[in-house]
Simulated assay, not measured.
Amino acid sequence: MWAVPAIAVDMNVSGVVHVVDGDTIDVGRTRVRLFGIDAPEADQTCVGADAAVLPCGAWVTAQVRAIYQGEHANCVRVDTDRYGRTVARCDVAGNDIGQTLVARGLAFSYPRYSRDYIDLEASARRAAVGVHAYEILRPADYRATRRVGSKVNRGAGHQTVVSDCLLKGNINAMGARIFHAPGQRDYSRTKINPAKGERWFCTAAQARAAGWRAARR
Rank of each mutant, 00 (worst) to 15 (best):
W2R: 02
A3T: 15
A3C: 05
A3Y: 06
A3D: 02
V4F: 03
P5W: 09
I7T: 08
V9S: 04
D10A: 15
V16S: 07
V16Y: 01
V16D: 05
V17R: 12
V20W: 02
D23A: 11
T24K: 03
R33N: 01
L34Y: 11
G36P: 09
D38S: 13
D38G: 05
D43Y: 00
Q44Y: 14
T45K: 15
V47W: 00
G48C: 01
A51S: 07
V53R: 15
C56L: 12
A58E: 14
R65T: 14
I67A: 10
C75R: 03
T80L: 03
R82T: 12
C90R: 00
A93V: 09
A93C: 04
G94E: 10
T100C: 01
R104D: 11
G105T: 07
F108P: 07
S109F: 10
Y110W: 14
Y110D: 09
R126T: 13
R126H: 12
R126E: 04
A127P: 01
G130F: 02
E135G: 11
L137K: 03
Y142K: 08
V148H: 07
G149P: 08
R154E: 04
G155L: 04
H158I: 11
L166W: 05
N170C: 04
I171S: 04
A176L: 08
A181F: 02
P182C: 06
D186H: 03
R189P: 05
A195Q: 11
K196M: 14
R199Q: 15
R199E: 01
C202S: 12
T203F: 01
A204C: 00
W212Q: 02
W212H: 08
R213P: 06
